[in-house]
Design a protein around this nucleic acid. Sequence first.
DNA 1: ACACGTTCTACCATTGAACGGAAGCTGATG
DNA 2: CATCAGCTTCCGTTCAATGGTAGAACGTGT
Lengths: 246, 246
Amino acid sequence: MANSASGDSVVDRVVRVIEAFPEGTTSLQLSELADRSGLPLSSAHRLVRQLSEHGLLDLGAGGTVRLGLRLWELVNRNSPTLALRQAAMPFMEDIQQVLNQNVNLAVLDGWEALFVERLSRRGSVANRARIAGRMPVHISSAGLALMAHQSRELQAEYLEQFADSSGKVTAGVVRHLLAEAAQQGYAQLAGVVDPDTWGIAVPVINSKRRTVAALGVVVPLAEMRLQALVPALQTAARGIGRQLGD
Amino acid sequence: MANSASGDSVVDRVVRVIEAFPEGTTSLQLSELADRSGLPLSSAHRLVRQLSEHGLLDLGAGGTVRLGLRLWELVNRNSPTLALRQAAMPFMEDIQQVLNQNVNLAVLDGWEALFVERLSRRGSVANRARIAGRMPVHISSAGLALMAHQSRELQAEYLEQFADSSGKVTAGVVRHLLAEAAQQGYAQLAGVVDPDTWGIAVPVINSKRRTVAALGVVVPLAEMRLQALVPALQTAARGIGRQLGD
DNA sequence: ACACGTTCTACCATTGAACGGAAGCTGATG
DNA sequence: CATCAGCTTCCGTTCAATGGTAGAACGTGT
């Protein structure tokens, strides 16, 4: 647009405004939003006002900016993972009831597993917080289960990330993890948040034989019984896959 | 911006593109999107491409447009109802376990109750579908519970809707429903979808004595036992309210 | 009570980004 | 092979977006 010092489009700016909210932050002051998005205050103000007129943002008294309920509604009604989550929920509830463990469902986005649904272990504090959370592929069982069943091309492209020896993790190690996950039909990995827990995940394969999601559980080390967990997960994953159209 | 035949801003158009998705539809063809949003094809195409470069939309091969995973992620991480849902989930699970009924949580948005969370009755098919659903205030127990505890000004403004005698529902009837809900401390109403079910909802009041949500259940007529349901809901609602900051 | 700092909001002349018709491209269909 | 329908790109025209500046509202320290 005219006079754009930074040479970005309106769309760029709208995106930057929405992305300016730090994870888990629901409310931001206008001036802070302007700072975080790198926009002049007056521009940020104008954009926020326009967006809030449509309900995508909510500009409260005193310059408090929140995401709008309308935006939440639109996204949750038309979410690309809607069909997946609907198909998966009954099976996830079964797993939760039978195994009594934390169950989660993830999809691949870039080089990360994006968790799209989660049921907490009964009795434990429900942590909805981690929904919409991300984990790098190579340090999450869900990520490994997803990547292990992608095309060779994508896997190769992914592994290039580890080509430079600057990181601790080498391409060889990751390649081995993927190979193991592919061969076994499930992925297991020590918990990242809590070292006394283990993650186990299996691929969810749709009718076109594409791996579209990973179904996983997080279990305390003491309750780690692969013989019981893996078949249950695989059965549920097949059930979910059968429900999915494409 | 320049040459806008319809005299709308870029922001307007972005909103129209996002809103063009009909409820429950996750995928749209570009040409259909252009139609629905009332934009020239080339303009729609440009906007969609820009938005998908940022991950807010997903422009697939063949002109298939979906909402982007990134958008879903951003909205769910920073949702204005995040704190509410987190505070409410444990109590909702308690209700679900103890009463074994469908539990839901709604907030007021305009003259409608917007359902932000839902737990299904055990054994029944999980219907995530209805999450992010809306119901007019006067035909939902949640809506009545919410409106009954709003300020006089807002209630008066709301009741003006029914001033003209064109609709079946008169202002008097609605006023009576609200008064009853306010006096009783809970709202009950015959189910809309299924006439053999009843909805019961109680207000969730935060530490500043503002009614910010409604907690409700949907029960089959045969299991309608107010003596058991209402106290349980009220107890849970108080628990939720205590967890909420503002 | 006054001065100062901070933050939100409004204004308006400049200017380059957005617009959209038209042409090109691609793939499916008869 | 011709036709069609839908997606994509191009490019000259135009006016909507921009952001510095100023004012209003509020809080805070002196």
